[in-house]
Design a protein around this nucleic acid. Structure first.
Lengths: 189, 189
DNA sequence: GTTTCGTGTTGACAAATGTCAACGTTTCAG
DNA sequence: CTGAAACGTTGACATTTGTCAACACGAAAC
């Protein structure tokens, strides 16, 4: 499990940092079942997670308590509520597992220590931030300019594996449409 | 004009960096009229801009060539297509002035030099990135979970100055609704 | 093995929003 | 100052999407 993170870091940097074992030791491991909540909105987000296996859902509730999903994170990617984690503010989002998942977690203290002592860790953080940002921008632009059907087509092209891996309910929530509309539109392909 | 940037950097860092004049000299100034395009999608984004005065619109076209606005940047804020700028890839977005504007621009070479030689500049960059990311996340979540009317109310509360400063057309495009719907819903307040 | 619950599908209808057209007003270039 | 173009508003109507309800199916719980 830790090896997945080791490999991820090596791939990211294109080289092996000297103190990689120190870096890896700063994380602790978590084995979670399906449907476990690891962050509730209103709480302070205490960790950044690396998803070694499984799948996480980042979502918000609207005023009728419907969930809409901002992001879906699969293995070999990072997940957190960075704004809450970085600014120590209450989280505006919730995170839970949608599959049994293995996570590697790093707390704020460990994170800051690595940021200061391992220059390459700072670099990895910047890469994660940039990737997260790029992802968000992309998502806003698809949301704003595409119809429900176009968004489905977009997902099939851009993240095809999700279509077969996840429940229709979750995909609909990710696309910002109702489950029924999603079911109907699928028929029109 | 340059003084606005100086003050912005000092405010951000909470202190004056030693080589601030070196930093400032790396920027060049631009005076633009209303409606000037400074980035077209497909081009590589060559600069990061600091908006000393005026207002910029970041937008995309859908397949019918309607514009939708991802972001609106007013004075004392940064604007770029960071993904294109950082990765030297074709931009997916367009940027133009919506008011006469004074900009300070830094190119990639200058940017990288400052990143390497001025640690605080790296820090400012990270702050910009974090703020941009936070802003995007916020925007996705409002888009996905709010109705048109709720989005109008949200804008009035969150960025009230924009309502009086910008054209209805632009605001509608920022909220992801048609100009007519916007006009009608305004009446219902 | 049976029950129970969540999921996916479908129908009927309602609500929200978009589109097209018309028209008065404002803005801006010449 | 003046004419053309863009903007804002309103009406009529079309389209998209949501909501509620019913039901079949399969997975998980007992």
């Amino acid at each position: 499990m830790v090896n997945k993170l080791r490999q991820h870091i090596i791939d990211r940097l294109g080289s092996t940092p000297d103190n990689i074992d120190d870096v890896l030791a700063t994380f602790h491991t978590l084995k979670l079942k399906r449907n476990e909540v690891i962050l509730k909105q209103g709480e302070i987000c205490k960790y950044v997670y690396f998803v070694a296996s499984g799948c996480l859902q980042v979502f918000v509730y609207d005023k009728e308590m419907n969930e809409t999903t901002r992001d879906i994170i699969t293995e070999n990617n990072w997940c957190s509520e960075l704004i809450s984690f970085g600014g120590q503010q209450p989280a505006t989002e919730n995170i839970r597992t949608v599959e049994p998942s293995d996570l590697l977690a790093i707390d704020r203290q460990g994170f800051q220590r690595l940021m200061e002592t391992v220059p390459q860790f700072d670099k990895v953080y910047k890469q994660i931030l940039e990737a997260s940002y790029a992802n968000s921008v992309y998502r806003i632009n698809t949301f704003v300019s595409l119809t429900a059907l176009e968004r489905i087509k977009w997902l099939m092209e851009y993240r095809p594996k999700l279509m077969s891996r996840l429940s229709s309910k979750l995909i609909a929530s990710y696309l910002g449409i109702s489950q029924e509309t999603f079911s109907r539109l699928k028929g029109k392909l």
